[in-house]
Design a protein around this nucleic acid. Sequence first.
RNA 1: GGGCCUAUGGCGCAGCAUGGAUAGCGUGUUGGACUUCUAAUCCAAAAGUCAAGGGAUCGAAGCCCUUUGGGCCCA
Length: 629
Amino acid sequence: MTFKSILDEIENNLTKILSDLSVSDVEFSVEPAKPGFGDVSSNVSFLLAKSLKKSPKEIAEMLSEKYSSCTSTTLVLKSEPHPSGYLNFIANWDKLSQLIISESYLDTCGDVELGNGSSMVVEHTSVNPNKALHIGHIRNIIIGDTISRILEKSGYKVNVLNYIDDSGLQVADIIVGFKHFGYAEEPPDGKKFDHYCGDDVYVKTTEKYEADSSLEEIRKKVLKELEDGNSETAKFGDKITRRVLAGQLETCWNFGVTYDCLNFESQIIRSGLWSKIFEKLKEMNLVEFENEGKNGGCWVIRGDGKEEDKVIVRSNGTATYIAKDIPYAAWKLGLLEDPFNYEQYENEQPNSRVLWQTSLKDTDKISKDFTGEKVVTVIDSRQANLQKIITTLMDKFKSAPDAYNHLGYESVTLSSDTAKTLGLETDGKQTQMSGRKGLYVSADSVYDILKEKTKEETKKRHPEMDDSEIEIIAHSVSVGTIRYEMIKQDLDKIITFDLTKSLSLEGDTSPYIQYTHARASRILEKSGRTPTIDVDFTLLKEKSELDLIKNIGLFNLQVRDAANNLSPKVIARYCYDLAVSFNSFYEKSKVLDLGDVELENSRLCLVNSFKIVLEKALDLLGIQSPDRM
RNA sequence: GGGCCUAUGGCGCAGCAUGGAUAGCGUGUUGGACUUCUAAUCCAAAAGUCAAGGGAUCGAAGCCCUUUGGGCCCA
């Protein structure tokens, strides 16, 4: 067990004391204490103040006295009433340290029993395959990837999906560029294909539309042709989008993000899934036919109360954009018979996780189950309206609340300085990125810049290091920096990306945390020993040591919190706090050459414990833990 | 016109779900610490009417109402 052991012990004892006082139904808290207030705090006295008609201070004193006569207390040394009314507890660290550190050496350390093996779909990325990923897409991808790691750690069987919208307007646009405006199929001088399509073909094609509105006709024609899977246009589109997709996936993989299945929109359309679900929706009365009014002749989803009705099929029989998302949402929840076969994706993912893709070919007679009892869809909050409709609809469809979850987040905008370098004057205001206007910073370029910077930094510190090792370190630091920047703040905060400011490597950043890991590794390496847990834990009694142990013991509580709230930043903050407490320990307590073998062993054991837990916590963020930096 | 998000030291953020103690952190500024297990580190100082107003509460950064600034979505 971990720090939770002492929380549980206190909670049980307090509950018992309360029942002796014949007070029940009090939902008091038992939490790790703020610094300076012991180890554990409870607010129980405040909650009793009214019913017992005493001040919180008096109650805390009374409870503290009763607590001291509790027999089943092994982890608490004593309880202390605080004049404010809080009831604080001092831990018996001799025992608690041993519990926490031994636990940290286990493979299961940090595991949480929440999912109990139930399946969960996490869909993220889902970028139109007509351009390279930019830094805004990266926020989506990193949030999704981190959440899926956290859910896996919490006992869910997670299926990670990437929806490939390969039949929309944006794809039509680059096809027009290639077919009608004569863009060469091969990018110039070795440019990555996804960058070429996004920077050159897409941006310049849309510029031409703006200059000449008669070109709209071509665009519409191409879009229409895309719908017929056997058309030349569709085949050409398929070839192009798959090549762009390969480029996008290469970027994702570089960032440590992998998937289980790619779902192609074109195949969802051709599978006839929509008509099946439309029939079902009609049967279940979840859609209704409107006879009159402004929506006369349309099929609509009735709005709740003050919400307006949403048209899903127009009077001319065409489906609206809302309708496009419904079949996929239902498929993800396993509400429909699966129309797909599956084949392995042609390129292998770096971590050997097998990547599948949907197929309509009869030759791929492989069936798979990538659905989930629950679904998390990571899409930015600009789509909150649409997602709300789908959520309500799906919860009714499955008749399970919380089956479909939209995990929204605010967008990444460009700082005025960075916008200026891309040729846009913004009067000091931040600005939304736009793939269509070419206003974005690509993920690959941020990575490249960062990698150059970290390479230099590493070389400066380790002139003797060979290039391949520097390469590996620079990679993990660059990826870490970007990943950490994307999830360290709340999902509903806008990230203003600034090309120079966002590349800081000091303070509350991934390199800070990774560096701390390298420090720990170095101590262990230099000691020349393999730490064991067969040490005297009572020797660890410095404040900085106990703080560190406490933080180590909070790991599983943090994972649970992050999973329950779908909040990746919880783990980011945890990693940072853990690193801070290690650095404090590092400054105050030497580990090696103490002339006291017992103490050295105990501290080495602690250092190793920290290293193990930090590594696991960073892994939840998809950040690697280098041994040297 | 309707809806969603947001406001906390100069700047960027945490804390808010579940009200209680001394509002934390990074950055920037000023000063200090490398012959030491790596200074991508650490220590210290200055810097806050928690947007404004009101309400319920013994008690509000947090809950409720109103207003304002910023961002977004729909019409």
